[in-house]
């Protein structure tokens, strides 16, 4: 932390003025360029806009979200996004995907970071090999894995059969039972390196004399990990988890390429994309995008509250 600069001194005032001057460009850029499209999408969600005639859109209120159709005889039915079972299926798919993949990625990321933090022959090469999957564009890795998971020509089935792990070839990406597993496998493979990298950074900041002291005191290594290492790297893990969860909740390209048109893997983003561009229900898709935004915002608030994240980066 920088020393507390007195805000009343001339020097202090100069610094505060400079600070605001430095912040302004970023705030302006974010507000204008990120806020405007967002505002437009939210506006579209309250209209009857269609992709072919965006300029003729007129205000319809909340009809895209919820609409009660009264049949006149005391009965009626709800329509709209909030009453759409396929939307809620997409919400559920997304949450399940995000929860499982981010948990696995954090776990594996932690293990890999611990391994990479130790010294052994060829560490540089191993580090490079482990970090590379993350540096590959998602569409490439999705293609690569789709090929490896192919039911007839895929090497995954060949290996599974050869090792006796499976009895018959599995159509990984097409079968409803395995589609989500396939998506999670690829996402974990791709993103664990990112987690490992950020956690590794946190690990290397733990002063080695703490370990030394624990070793001299004869503390069991497992206990050292849970009592010393883990609390110290918690801020690093939290930042990694938040950024990762934000991406996982919006997952699109991986699902879209690996398992197109699959009810079991259709995420909120894919649902929005289909309505926006394929089903000619632009306003409905905008409403889905808006709700997605709300769901994610709620999740972030929840994560931060539960994780009691110390945003100031102070280490306890």
């Amino acid at each position: 932390m920088a020393g507390p600069v007195s805000r009343n001194s001339e020097l202090g005032r100069q610094r505060v003025r400079a600070a605001w001057g430095f912040l302004t460009p970023m705030l302006l850029v974010l507000a204008l360029a990120a806020g405007w499209p967002l505002a437009r999408t939210i506006w579209f969600s309250f209209t009857d806009a269609r992709l072919s005639g965006l300029d003729e859109a007129s205000w319809v209120g909340v009809l895209n979200y919820v609409e009660y159709l009264d049949y006149g005889d005391g009965e009626g039915e709800y329509f709209g996004l909030l009453a759409d079972p396929s939307w809620w299926a997409a919400v559920w798919n997304t949450l399940r995907f995000a929860l499982i993949s981010v948990t696995l990625e954090t776990l594996f990321g932690l293990i890999i970071a611990l391994v990479l933090n130790a010294s052994f022959p060829g560490r540089g090469l191993v580090r490079a090999a482990v970090l590379v999957p993350w540096a590959i564009p998602t569409i490439v890795s999705a293609k690569m894995w789709a090929w490896m998971m192919h039911d007839q020509f895929g090497i995954l089935n060949d290996m599974g059969l050869a090792l006796g792990l499976i009895d018959a070839p599995i159509a990984w990406t097409a079968s409803p039972d395995t589609a989500m597993i396939a998506v999670i496998i690829v996402d974990v493979w791709k993103t664990t390196p990112f987690m490992a990298l950020l956690i590794l950074a946190g690990l290397q900041l733990v002063p080695s004399d703490i370990y030394e002291a624990a070793r001299i005191d004869g503390v069991h290594p497992v206990k050292v990990f849970f009592r010393i290492t883990l609390p110290l790297i918690r801020p690093a893990i939290m930042v990694a988890v938040i950024f990762r969860a934000l991406d996982a909740l919006r997952v699109f390209d991986l699902v879209y390429v690996l398992t197109p048109n699959n009810d079991r893997t259709r995420t909120m983003s894919v649902f929005a994309q289909e309505n926006l561009f394929q089903f000619d229900k632009f306003a409905y898709g905008s409403a889905a995008s808006t709700l997605l935004f709300v769901v994610i915002a709620l999740m972030v608030i929840l994560t931060i509250t539960l994780g009691r994240m110390d945003l100031e980066g102070r280490r306890s």
Binding site: P37, L246, F252
Partner: peptide, 16 residues
């Protein structure tokens, strides 16, 4: 600042 990472890319594609 994180809120810009909460909007799905597909959702803001058309405005952009």
């Amino acid at each position: 600042m994180l809120s810009t990472k909460m909007m799905p890319a597909v959702g803001v594609l058309v405005p952009i």
